[in-house]
Amino acid sequence: MLTSPEALIAILGMALVTFAVKAGGLLLANRLPREGFAASWLRHIPGAVMASLVAPALVTGSAAEAIAAAVTGVVFFATRNLLAAMAAGVLTVFLARMALGV
């Protein structure tokens, strides 16, 4: 399977809105709020979206996932390295599932 019309439409749509926002920032440069409510709302979007992605997965996971999440966080703060944090999380969940038998 190479791709489908649905996937092509989705990717082209994503590309179009992404380019529109990037180009729009430059074109509207003199009219955009630099501070205030709208600016701080825009700044908080990426973190809030990421938190929304992670939270349900963590809440519905078993003890193994909870332990692995804690290890992922500690390793990320210690190394600031995404790959290391992910590898530590995966290894921990693998070991914890064996140990806890889940």
Binding site: M50, A51, L53, A69, T72, F76, R80, A85, M86
Partner: peptide
Amino acid sequence: GLDFAFTATFLALLLGL
């Protein structure tokens, strides 16, 4: 345990923000 790679990655991405 690679199904957890996704959650771990997003958690690290989030903490990096």
